[in-house]
């Protein structure tokens, strides 16, 4: 009787060990497959863009002409357009996303109104980007056009500025949601200590909450920047799609993602196709570089 009981126990232990091993191996496998996926993304892009890298070299990055007829491909205007729209969008969105984060995190953390507001902001992130494009084309463009008429610039309506506004709206929820969570995680003992010393609410936010939640807020900003860099559909619809270099933020321009989306289907010559893929590679690298810089910034903020 004892023996049988022991056997069962041993069997169970074996089973447990096997389960542990199996679980661990599958975890490693899944993690590895993600790594392999990213590396093969990069490899595919590099291999496919080889013809264009060979033919155009460094000129691809600094060239100012994108001429599929003459097979001359310079990505500078699109690189500029991508960075301009993304950073401008970030600049517009930060005040809103931080304000929402503070409001929902500190002033109204609970209650139906807070829930309602929170859900509507999350809804902003869930709306498909083509709908933003439509809205931009039919509502925002006429508004921007009348603004441009008042400012005395060519009233295109579409262009870098319009795309940045659309992008700003699209990326607000990312920084806002993360910021809200971070602000809510600030220990109440810290806040109460500040209050007991006679600090006003604004002073508590400025001196206690924001410094404490800084890394989280920055991470949210970074997340939204990543989103802005790669956004394609909404931008394509309102940016004007011209390969000319924009002279002001009201000029039409183009971004790397929207050039790829626009021209890929009908790219007939192999150098053209390869150049579009290299454009994808550049976009990939820009995103990686910005992410790395962002991580560095967050690290510095948190260790300080």
């Amino acid at each position: 009787m004892m023996n049988v009981w022991k056997n069962v126990k041993i069997k169970r232990a074996f089973h447990q060990i096997r389960m542990e091993k199996f679980f661990k191996t599958s975890l490693v496998l899944i993690a590895l497959s993600i790594l392999i996926l990213v590396i093969s993304f990069l490899l595919t892009l590099v291999v496919q863009s080889m013809p264009s890298i060979k033919a155009l070299g460094f000129g691809f990055l600094v060239g100012k002409t994108w001429d599929p007829v003459a097979n001359v491909y310079g990505t500078y205007p699109f690189l500029l357009g991508t960075l301009l729209t993304s950073f401008l969008a970030l600049l517009i969105s930060i005040p809103f996303s931080f304000a929402i984060a503070i409001f929902l995190g500190e002033y109204f953390p609970r209650g139906w109104f807070s829930e309602f507001l929170k859900n509507s902001i999350e809804l902003i992130a869930a709306v498909p980007s083509v709908i933003y494009g439509f809205w931009g084309l039919f509502v925002l463009v006429p508004l921007v056009r009348s603004l441009e008429i008042k400012l005395g610039v060519t009233p295109y309506g579409i262009g870098i500025f319009t795309s940045s506004v659309i992008l700003a709206i699209m990326i607000i929820p990312y920084a806002a949601s993360l910021g809200r969570e971070m602000i809510r995680m600030v220990p109440s003992s810290l806040k109460e200590a500040a209050y007991s010393l006679g600090a006003t609410r604004y002073e508590v936010i400025r001196a206690v909450i924001l410094p404490y939640a800084k890394s989280g807020l920055m991470a949210g900003v970074l997340l939204s920047l990543g989103r802005a860099l790669g956004e394609t559909m909404a931008v394509t619809m309102v940016i004007g799609n011209t390969s000319l270099i924009p002279k002001s933020i009201f000029d039409p321009g183009n971004t790397m993602a929207s050039v790829i989306a626009n021209e890929f289907t009908e790219a007939a010559s192999s150098l053209y196709l390869s150049s579009l893929i290299e454009l994808g590679l550049v976009l990939f690298l820009v995103t990686v570089v910005i992410n790395l810089i962002g991580k560095r910034i967050i690290k510095r903020f948190t260790t300080e």
């Binding site: 002409t65 994108w66 001429d67 599929p68 007829v69 003459a70 295109y156 579409i158 394509t236 619809m237 004007g240 799609n241 011209t242 390969s243 039409p252 183009n254 626009n262 021209e263 009908e266 790219a267 007939a268």
Partner: peptide
């Protein structure tokens, strides 16, 4: 100056999809 093709380097104007 420009030539012909499915996409060209437009000297002027704005693009729609």
């Amino acid at each position: 100056k420009v030539g012909k093709g499915t996409s060209v380097n437009w000297p002027q104007g704005i693009g729609g999809k």
